[in-house]
Amino acid sequence: MPANEFNGFTDYGIGIGLRVPHYRHILAEKPLVDWFEIISENFMVEGGRPLEVLDQILEQYRVVQHGVAMYFGSADRLNREHLKRLKRLVKKTKTPWLSDHLCWGSVDGRYTHDLLPMPYTFAAAKVTADRIRQARDYLEVPICVENVSSYAEYHASEMTEWEFLSEVVEAADCGILMDVNNIYVSSENHGFDPYEYLNNIPHHRVGQIHIAGHSKFEKYTLDTHDHPVLDPVWKMYAHLLKKTGPTATLLEWDDSIPSFEEVHREALKANLFHKAKTPAASSGATR
């Protein structure tokens, strides 16, 4: 690690999400950024400004695609039109791996545009793993699935979330995009130990990590991506790196977005943890 088959044997460092308010700054100033994560759906269009911006970004930077609408956990068949468009974009960006969420969000062709938690059952894991395999085979790019933050647990569940995640990624033979903030948010909402989660996933499958900020309300914690990363999340991040070795990491900031410099500065804090000695790093990791 960090280079593994799930991130296309790449050695990416700290990236940030490409967001509209920063376009002008990035294109004009060309700041030094290791890589940008793009939301695939924002660029799955036929023409116009989004693709023009993307072309300019691709001339200068490495880009990794992150999706929000594949809904691997939906019971429907995969949406062919969606996959076709996604593949076109994959060819354009040459993303070394592609990520989307371990969730559902549509049924019978109707969409919620939300990342809804799965019922953690063996049957659901099988359906999800099958869909991930099909998508990967069609897209011809490694896939990492991301754990979502959640606000509800279902009676139908037969296992914990981390058991479900492990079941799916083993069955699909795919990677994990480990969102540390999402684990924290869900642990606050469901009362589990986030370190139990971190300790009990197949670490060799982690191809990428997400960090972000969240908001605490009176009765629940929400994954708002509108703050700097909070201390408990940094601690979890450090803990995870000890298990995985230095891993491509991305800061998500989607609401109340501050200046590019501020977001970048926040993301680069992750370097402090990468530079710390980790078992993988000290045993000859490529970074």
Partner: peptide, 13 residues
């Protein structure tokens, strides 16, 4: 109106 769509994975309250 900047017209640029902003799909994202965060949650708004």
């Amino acid at each position: 109106f900047d017209g640029l769509r902003k799909e994202a994975s965060n949650t708004s309250n």
